[in-house]
Amino acid sequence: MTGLEATLRAARAAGRKLLVPYITGGYRPEWLDVVRAVADAGADAIEIGIPFSDPVMDGPVIQRASEDALAAGATPGGILAALRGHDAGVPLAVMTYYNICFHMGHERFAQGLVDAGVSAAILPDLPLEETGPWCDAADAAGVETVLLAAPTAPDERLPRICARSRGFVYAVGLLGVTGERDTLAATATSIAARLKSVTDLPVLVGVGISNADQAVEASAVADGVVIGSALMRILLDGGGPEGAAAFVAGVRAALDG
């Protein structure tokens, strides 16, 4: 499997806007079928959420998906075991909270991702200043660590975040937690533009990207988008692999213009 950053850079070079859907691991028994369906529907990479008991960066939809997954017995080990040998055909990144990684041990967690065929990790409660021990282990194992950059960051902070980020830079689109919004926040394009001016890494906007129109609007400035809650709401409502594929295909078509 080619790495996350290499894959995204190649797609961008080919003139493509990048689409990274998010799926909570273990939210329903068929979650792996959803991963496959979303990959086939035009995802460039997929974020797999490892549910955590206290997801402070997540709004109601992903909270509910996480609670469902935990109630169904999902564990970090179980999710990584399920991914092992499952070739989605696109790079995978796990999204979870730092205690899951810290508790398992940095080296063990990194090796667990490698063994599961996961390219990258996103830890939304591990800001730049605290990344050292994890990034050392991740770098050694060949795991790419995606860092987040928020609208509240002063200008001098953004180049430092980009320098430490691998895979892409996750531009937090608004002040707030994950979840759908009626309109795209002005901060989505402003943070994307600020990041684009200081880095050559792919810049993807996530948090608050709710539909195809907003994805297109954000991607006018950014290299692409991450979509989580809008997809998970469809899945929690029983949309299944077909519903997910239809949604992702719709966003894909809009992005491809």
Partner: peptide
């Protein structure tokens, strides 16, 4: 300066809150 009492403490928050 990084908010540690021995090995404990720190600032493990979403990036949005770090400047605050």
């Amino acid at each position: 300066s990084d908010g540690r009492f021995g090995e404990f403490g720190g600032r493990f928050v979403p990036e949005t809150l770090v400047p605050a």
